[in-house]
Every structure is written in structure tokens, then in C-alpha cells.
Amino acid sequence: MSADLSVNIAGVEFKNPVITASGTFGFGEEYNKFYSISLLGGISCKGTTLYPREGNPPVRIAETPMGILNSVGLQNPGVDEFIDRHLPFLSQHDAVIIANIAGSTEDEYVEAVRRLNGTCVDMVELNISCPNVKEGGVAFGTKPESVEKITSAVKKVCEQPLMVKLTPNVTDITETALAAEAAGADAVSLINTLTGMRIDIKTGRPVLHNNIGGMSGPAVFPVALRMVWQVANKVSIPVVGMGGISTWQNAVEMLLAGASAIQVGTACFNDVFAPLKIIDGLRKYLDENGYSSVSELTGGVEIW
């Protein structure tokens, strides 16, 4: 008998632990041309704000050794259009729908999340870690007090289980994780991108028009793994691990470090089938090693 790939995170049932990461997978429409998005455990939608945003001027992407920097700046159609235009498509498919919500003020976060009430969104991921917008975003995510304040404000109005997405650009990520938990978060997801920079030596200007951007891709995986392990050892709510996962082996490592599920992002730019290959690889690994359920891997690392 094949191992059970399903996981339950904060009461939400995922048929497998592979979720596509916010900002890399749109609202699922584009990749559904390659395969049915119903094969995925879940989809974390593009970061959405109360009002539409045009994002940052280009250039918005720079390549780094086995990684990228991006500075999209939360370009999105706004929460109302997300509900009207994109949710109907997502609701026709069998993947957990995670709305990723960002904002410039606490009121914007609260109002955007409130508008999701009564919709078919299964879970809310609170994006307090976007490094690419001038106001809000990461400003809410770097201090435990502000994490606690915004999490509890949103939690009061949020009907769905609430997952808080943490920034790695802090001294001790366990402090912000514990603050989110204390404020009522049902899960945490980490890591968002690491702030970085490239300079074009021909022009003397930063490659990114925003000067700095968020780094992702295989290069950040060891950092992400370490942070997930640290957080999973401190909090008692589920941890969703992400950051540079591009193979099923990376996914196994992330689960062993303490993640209950994983998100795959930048890997899709290289291989649109990466999430499916990870699901298949996980299944084979579990079967070959005698596991009956993927959740047996979570936190299974044996520390020296």
C-alpha cells in the first residue's frame, strides 16, 4: 500500500504537502495549461492587497548564483478582483486555496481579510514579510511586538485558519514566530525572501530599479532549512517550510527539519513540473523507506 501523503494543517486537509508559493504561481491559471492544478496540495495565491497595485518599475529580476532577486512590489489586482475574477477558477479545482494578503496599514490588512469571509478561500497567509514595498509589508514582520499586533488584529476578523508568513531578515526568527503564535496564528510559513542586491558594473547602477530585492532559489535553501528547524523547535503550531526547495530531496529535508508541509516557488521558473516531480519523489521515498504517512517525517531529524 502506498504511503498517505495527506497532511492536516490547522484543520485544513491537504491531499499532499506540496503547495505552490505566493508570487511565483499567479492564481494558478497559467500553470493549469501544463497540468491540472488539482494535483497540487495547495496554491498560495499571488500577494493581494485591499486595493490594486501596479508594483515597482522594471527591472524587477536579477539572476544570482543558483538564485534570483525579485522586486515585483506586490503588483496585484486587489482583493475584490481576486474574489470576482480568480477565485471562481480556483474553486473549480481540487487544491487548497490559500489567499496571501498584504497591506500598507493594519486597517488595510484587516479589511482585505474581512472581505475573504464567506468565500471559498480555505486558508489565509498573512504576508508581513514582503521586502519590496516601501510601506507596510516587512515593516510589520521584523519586530515581535508588531507581528503580535497585526496578527491579533487580523485574527479577530479572519474566518479561515490564519498562517503568518515570516521574514528571514531578522536577528532571531523564533521571536517573530512565537509572537505570531501568541497572537493566535494557526500556523506559520517561512521563509520569505532574503533581502539582496546586485550592481551592474557597466552602468554603476543597481540591476533592480528598486535597488534591492528579495532573494530566492536553491542558494537560500540551507538558510531556510535552518530557520524552519529553529522555529519548529519553539512553536507548537504547524510550520510550513519554504525557501529554495527545488527537488523532492530538499522537500524531505524540510519535513525532517520540522515542516508539516512545504512550498515550492522559484523552482517553477526553471521547471514548470517541479511541484509534481516533488510529489512523485516524496511518494517513492516514503514507500521505499517503509513510511505509512508523510507526516511521520515531520521533525524527524536526529540531532547530533
Binding site: 527591472v59 525579485n70 515585483v72
Partner: peptide
Amino acid sequence: ERMGCGVGACLVCA
């Protein structure tokens, strides 16, 4: 424009 996903999902090639 410098591009990421190429399929319209990541929005970098603005």
C-alpha cells in the same frame, strides 16, 4: 524585458 517564469505568473517582466 528581463523575464522570470515566462508564462505570466511571476509578473517580473513589467
